[in-house]
């Protein structure tokens, strides 16, 4: 944590301030400014909902419902523009950190605004589809913030000061040794080694990556099959163990990366689906007014 600059107006103090702010998490940006704004928005929305007595029951089509719906729609449009904003490196007062901070907190406030807009009327229709998509996007976003805050540490710990390239090179090094060490082996065992060597290091689908379970791992199979019967087999087994360890590190890396990235594969496509559902929701409501 950087220390706070005390006194002095010159370039130094200015730079210190900038450095300070550079190391503040986007969640804590400007003393949780956007958290308070979002909380205020939620409380105002809840208070309004409780104070207005809507007959026969709260409904998205009352004037308050339309107000909440308009706010929600505008928020969703703006939130989805983060993807555009982060690709534009512009000078100006538009800090990407402030934008991200607002994205997170205002996105969370949509849980309240969107839910109140439904009037707690849920059904099998395009309106609830939009609501559910919004919930999924928000929850995937919450997961994203959580893993971004926690997983990079374990990612770094798993690397053990190796780059990804080095991990692959280490595996290649073991493979070269395995190939020569396996020369004395018989046909069946040699085939096992070939299968292990030929299997793509990244083999396995998204589920395997997320769970870290690789039932089809040829290295593990070879390890189980080739015992310590001969000197050559012992050496191959020792090398296969090394390969297995190296694979485990790579797969650990894959698992953490997958957990770190999976939410975006929900968050982004569902955001676009949400925009489509939201369009259908708004148009259908007024088409069949």
């Amino acid at each position: 944590m950087a220390t706070k600059a005390t006194g002095g107006i010159g370039r130094f103090a200015q730079d210190e301030r900038r450095r300070d702010s550079d190391h503040v998490s986007f969640l804590k940006h400007k003393g949780f400014r956007w958290l308070w704004i979002a909380l205020g928005l939620c409380l105002a929305a809840i208070a309004g909902y409780l104070l207005i007595d809507q007959e026969p029951r709260p409904n998205g089509g009352s004037w308050y419902g339309y107000t909440l719906g308009t706010i929600g729609f505008a928020l969703i449009l703006w939130l989805s523009l983060l993807g555009v904003r982060k690709r534009r490196i512009n000078p100006g007062a538009w800090s990407l950190k402030a934008w991200t901070s607002a994205h997170v907190y205002l996105g969370l406030s949509l849980l309240v605004i969107g839910t109140l807009h439904t009037g707690f009327q849920i059904g099998w229709n395009v309106h609830t589809l939009a609501y559910v998509l919004m919930l999924l996007v928000i929850f995937s976003g919450i997961y994203g913030v959580y893993v971004y805050a926690t997983l990079p540490q374990s990612l770094s710990a798993n690397r053990k000061e190796m780059t990804r390239k080095q991990m692959l090179e280490a595996l290649t090094a073991i493979d070269r040794q395995l190939e020569s060490a396996a020369q004395p082996l018989g046909r069946a065992e040699a085939d096992m080694v070939i299968a292990a060597l030929e299997q793509d290091v990244f083999a396995g689908g998204p589920v395997a990556r997320l769970t870290g379970s690789y039932p089809g791992c040829a290295t593990a199979r070879a390890l189980r099959a080739i015992g310590t019967g001969s000197q050559a087999a012992t050496r191959v087994t020792a090398l296969l163990e090394k390969r297995s360890e190296q694979l485990a590190q790579i797969r650990g890396q894959l698992r953490i990366r997958a957990m770190l990235e999976i939410w975006l594969f929900i968050h982004i496509p569902l955001t676009i689906a949400l925009l489509a559902a939201l369009t259908a929701h708004v148009i259908s409501v007024f088409y069949y007014w």
């Binding site: 396995g204 990556r209 997958a258 496509p269 489509a276």
Partner: peptide, 19 residues
């Protein structure tokens, strides 16, 4: 290959299909 994207359909394609 380390990226999850290597084993999942692209976000853009999924977005287009859903929307």
């Amino acid at each position: 290959g380390f990226a999850l994207a290597s084993v999942l359909p692209s976000k853009r394609a999924m977005s287009w299909i859903f929307a």
